[in-house]
Amino acid sequence: MESDKTATKPRKSGRVTGALRALTRNKESIFGLAIVVSFLLIAAVVELSTLLNVTILPYSPTAEVAPGALPPSLKYLFGTDNLGRDLFSRIVSATPYDIAIGYIVVGSAFVIGALLGGYAGIRGGILDEILMRFTDVFFALPVLVLALVIAAVLGTGVTNMAIALMIVWWPAYARLARGEALKVAHQNYIEAARLSGNGHRKILFRHVLPNISGTMLVYATLDIGTVILVYSGLTYLGLAVHPPTPDWGEMVSDYHSYILSAPWLALFPGLVISLGVIGFSLLGDGVKDAQETR
């Protein structure tokens, strides 16, 4: 440490830059980061343009611009669909929703899970036991199946699907937070905090959450892709969006009957889902490696 030249430099943002440096050392993570950043940019630009009422898409995603299905060309990048709508515009215009759902679901699962799991972890006792048995039940059911049941009760629609996904998503975070909180709870600085007159709640916010959020963030990064994947499954089943609103999963479902006559129709939206999910998982892997090697 003393001989390390970098140690003398101001270390204010050392953590973040260090993590970024470790991340960019790996080609795969750069690729993942590039995908994620471009998806985020596209989502932001599209959303902004709708808010400002500016047209940036080449064509309207819902209007007929060509006579029936045309193969990909310079004019229609991904071709047009059976109703003559521009596929590229449709796919791009669906980006904000799919990305936002990923972040909203993971974000709320993170918050609920960290609070409940973290508290249960340091508190222990009957509360902890109840929470763990509760999550056990959730773990016995696949998320998609649970989401389907919740969809049946709540009804379809984007908001309801987001709620359904939140309901099934938080237990994993509660489990993770609880495990990490247990590790932290055995540290002496928690006891020192008790000796400073702090109760469970203060300890949770001042010591436990700051110390477990790193590991949880890594998990969350990996997880956003999974949410997008499952959400696309729900839209494929027609539970989230209703035509003519475009959505990736819904497009694959819509166009799969044309795979022999116009295979590009189902291929492009599917590829976009895969690319997004790959981006998030490569980035997540990279973040995980970077954290572990530190």
């Binding site: 540290q187 002496n188 400073s196 007159g197």
Partner: peptide, 21 residues
Amino acid sequence: DSSLDPQMKVGNSISQPLKGL
């Protein structure tokens, strides 16, 4: 190593009993 919160500045750790008590 375990008696100081890795995320907390030295000064804040020392201030903790003063603030709490």
